[in-house]
């Protein structure tokens, strides 16, 4: 009986988190397309519902009723597993994101490591999809994506070390609380920029969308997918983008903290601030997509290994030396 109560209450909490995440993923797709259109002086989706808000819903409905085609020469188990892996990994990482001091599904000791681990597993959905399709374009896309994601994870990891040096804890709520007086975006501004660009590469967003560069690879690893399985890849991708935005706002923009600790601002619940910060970062993501042309693959690798990695590593040395010299290293 006791177990049943636990299971029910946990399921309730999980649904309370996941349903808003999925709905906001649908909304964010609409926002992405609208911003893209706005920059290019087009209309964008504006027909279905007010301002075209229900466009994503209509798209989802369309995907649901389309036939799922599984190529006969594909490796069927892995082919079906790939979108499921992508989707699941994109959703389970939301468990540790803190929406306020108390509103967090799993307040674990190693929250930031968990986030990093799950985002580094994200590459498997893509490799599995690309390999199991048993076709040239998906395979090339998967190989590109694997190399790209592994390269940029390294610099994201080093940037996380920078933040951890200032915090002294791996818990996400501790990271947020350490920014009570000063958001880390100010002292670690270059790291914030590098994190933002690496997040673009990590989520295969333009200008780093080489894995699905339509001019060269049709649709990259998604070429053979159709119907709901394609939609799951697509949902997982956008959920990952939202997650990267959430990670950026927790690490650098003070998470659920209000910008100023004054009366009208500090009564607004922390979740609202977190959502606003995620939206701000996402709008930047969408603007970059509309403005910047695609990188060439060797330029992408050069940027990751020859520029970002040495820069972020030397910034670790700088941060550590500064904290050590002025005796500011966190002790707990």
């Amino acid at each position: 009986m006791e177990y049943l109560t636990i299971i029910f209450s946990e399921t309730y909490k999980i649904l309370f988190l996941l349903v808003p995440v999925l709905v906001s993923v649908a909304m964010i797709v609409w926002l992405d397309r609208r911003i893209w259109a706005f920059v290019q002086k087009r209309q964008g989706p504006n027909v279905v519902g007010p301002f075209g808000l229900l466009q994503s819903l209509a798209d989802a409905l369309k995907y649901m009723f389309k036939e799922v085609i599984i190529p006969s020469s594909s490796n069927k188990v892995i082919f079906i597993l790939a979108p499921i892996v992508t989707m699941t990994l994109a959703l389970i990482s939301w468990a540790v994101i803190p929406f306020s001091a108390t509103h967090v599904l799993a307040d674990i000791n190693v929250g930031i490591l968990y986030l990093f681990a799950v985002s580094s597993l994200g590459v498997y959905g893509i490799i599995m999809g690309g390999w199991a399709s048993n076709s040239k374009y998906p395979f090339l896309g998967a190989i590109r994506s694997a190399a790209q994601m592994v390269s940029y994870e390294v610099s994201i990891g080093v940037i996380i070390i920078n933040v951890l040096l200032c915090v002294g804890s791996l818990n996400l709520n501790d990271i947020v609380m350490a920014q009570e007086n000063l958001w880390f975006v100010i002292p670690l501004f270059p790291m914030f920029i590098i994190f933002f660009i690496s997040a673009l590469a990590e989520t295969n967003r333009p200008p780093f969308d080489l894995p699905e560069a339509e001019a060269e690879l049709v649709a990259g690893y998604q070429t053979e997918y159709s119907g709901m399985m394609y939609a799951m890849f697509w949902l997982g991708e956008y959920a990952n983008i939202l997650l990267m935005c959430a990670m950026g706002s927790v690490l650098f923009l003070g998470g659920w903290l209000s910008p100023i600790d004054l009366f009208p601002f500090n009564v607004i619940p922390g979740a609202v601030w977190l959502i606003l910060k995620i939206l701000l970062l996402f709008i930047l993501f969408a603007l970059v997509k509309a403005i910047v042309p695609r990188y060439r693959y060797d330029q992408l690798m050069r940027l990751g290994w020859k520029i970002f990695l040495p820069l972020s590593l030397s910034w670790v040395v700088l941060t550590a030396s500064y904290l050590f010299y002025f005796n500011l290293l966190p002790t707990n």
Binding site: L113, A117, L121
Partner: peptide, 8 residues
């Protein structure tokens, strides 16, 4: 273990 062995 997850980050190093599985992720890389």
């Amino acid at each position: 273990m997850l980050i190093i062995y599985v992720g890389a």
